[in-house]
């Protein structure tokens, strides 16, 4: 197996902020890796170091065995601009040609247009496209140079369900054809759909690096809200829970085992009311994991 990306003790500081803290990570040929973490966790910083946009503060990162800041290391790398970044006055086809001109082994323009469903607006200026159309163009640009590794930063933000599924299908097809993919997201569903391996990043550190199912089980949390019970009482019933209390007396607990907490609540004889339980969002789940780590 060849390492496409190899980070060793990779650290990036912005002034006082530690964005990445001694990250060791290796991404191999043909893998599909999800980088999962809340906003500000360090995902985008990691990608920008792999793309050669920034210098590491300390540690190192190799791309195809070379320095990402030298342009020859990036010949087989594909990445996406942010959706709003396309040059407004250029047409979609022109942007594809513009980006393609940088690569020695570019994919035929028509194949890219077909694959990502850009046919309907290929002759329109980027500024006149909808947000979803711009997203599709942005993701398509990552594949223009016939890459062996593609970095997708929040690829489907702002897309409706159908467009999201279509884009996932296109990316999966590329992965099946042998292209390694790194996708960042703070949506668990997106990671589940695309990735085989998940790396959870928070506070600039790797918190978990495992298969999708293992990580999903690890971060899966339930959110329980109830009135008539104090936050302190809830904490006593489940010390691992993250508990907050609103001004109106409603307490919220994010827990790993909500069933156990409900049973304990009933057994305690406290006169609670308005109990509800739902799946916690990834953001909420991360807060509990991070709490456990400290």
């Amino acid at each position: 197996m060849t390492a496409l990306v190899h980070a060793r003790a990779l650290t990036k500081r912005y002034g006082d902020t530690l964005a990445l803290d001694a990250v060791d990570l290796q991404i191999d040929d043909g893998e599909c890796v999800g980088l999962l973490g809340p906003n500000g966790a360090g995902k985008t910083t990691f990608l920008s170091l792999v793309e050669g946009l920034r210098h590491p503060t300390s540690g190192s990162v190799e791309l195809f065995g070379g320095d990402p800041r030298s342009s020859s290391s990036r010949l087989r790398l594909g990445s996406t601009p942010q959706a709003t970044a396309l040059p407004e006055s250029l047409k979609v086809g022109e942007v594809i040609d513009y980006v393609g001109a940088h690569f020695p082994r570019r994919a035929p323009r028509d194949a890219i247009i077909e694959e990502f469903g850009l046919g309907a607006f290929v002759d329109k200026q980027c500024g006149s496209l909808s947000g979803g159309q711009q997203r599709r163009v942005s993701v398509a640009l990552a594949f223009v140079g016939d890459p062996e590794l593609v970095l997708l930063d929040e690829p489907t933000t702002g897309l409706d369900v159908d467009a999201r599924r279509a884009l996932w299908a296109a990316v999966r097809a590329r992965h099946a054809a042998g292209c390694a993919i790194v996708v960042t997201s703070h949506h668990l569903e997106e990671i589940e759909q695309l990735a085989e391996r998940v790396v959870v990043i928070d506070g600039g550190r790797v918190r978990a690096d495992d298969t999708v199912s293992a990580v999903v089980a690890g971060v899966s949390r339930r959110r329980l809200t109830v009135a008539g019970v104090g936050a302190a009482q809830l904490s006593r019933l489940d010390p691992s829970a993250t508990v907050t209390e609103d001004a109106d007396g409603t307490a919220t607990a994010v827990v790993a085992d909500s069933d156990a907490l409900v049973r304990a609540l009933v057994a305690s004889g406290i006169a609670f009311h308005d109990l509800s339980v739902r799946g916690a969002t990834l953001e909420e789940a991360f807060l509990t994991i991070t709490k456990g780590a400290h």
């Binding site: 990036r74 709003t84 940088h102």
Partner: peptide, 15 residues
């Protein structure tokens, strides 16, 4: 100040 310029820098080719 827009993300297109950084994106161009991620492409191969001499600055």
């Amino acid at each position: 100040s827009k993300p297109w310029a950084p994106y161009l820098r991620t492409l191969p080719g001499s600055p």
